[in-house]
């Protein structure tokens, strides 16, 4: 894990150096270099995130925690939208970043709707049963 973070830091350092060189000598190459660096770092991060998601998936399957998958999905949406809206802001596309944020919030609400309806059903069952 420590080696991974060192690799990622090294990669980001190389990206920054190339981006700086590009900004001095060939400014039109700067943004593609940043995007390439971003994709490479994300490609390194995804297996780690997969380990975490697999761990929770196994726990959910073993103990029957069905609701936790919803929270993981909301968290994943939040993290992905956060990262991409930040990139949009870096590229001075604030409105696209805001749209991504809006989309992530609405999709999170849609994902947790079954949980909310489950709660209302439960309250209804409790009050009707007795």
């Amino acid at each position: 894990m420590v080696q991974d973070i060192i690799k990622i830091c090294g990669l980001s350092l190389i990206c920054i150096i190339f981006s700086y060189i590009a900004s001095v000598y060939k400014s039109e190459w700067q943004k593609p270099i940043v995007i390439a660096g971003f994709i490479m770092i994300i490609a390194k991060t995804l297996p780690l995130a997969k380990t975490l998601i697999d761990f929770f998936g196994d726990a959910c399957a073993e103990y029957g925690f069905s609701g936790i998958k919803v929270i993981i999905a909301v968290l994943a949406i939040g993290v992905i939208s956060d990262v991409f809206s930040q990139i949009c802001r870096d590229f001075e596309s604030e409105s696209i970043g805001t749209a991504i944020g809006m989309f992530s919030k609405i999709s999170s609400l849609i994902i947790i709707l079954p949980l909310i309806s489950k709660v209302f059903e439960l309250i209804k069952t409790i009050l009707n049963a007795e």
């Binding site: 929270i71 909301v74 949406i77 993290v79 930040q86 919030k105 947790i112 949980l115």
Partner: peptide
């Protein structure tokens, strides 16, 4: 830890769903 504090909508969604799952459990 992971989400930006300005992104409070997602944080509230996570809190709400965690509370609901806890209550159902």
């Amino acid at each position: 830890f992971l989400l930006d504090e300005n992104d409070s909508g997602i944080l509230k969604c996570v809190d709400l769903s965690a509370n609901i799952v806890f209550s159902l459990g």
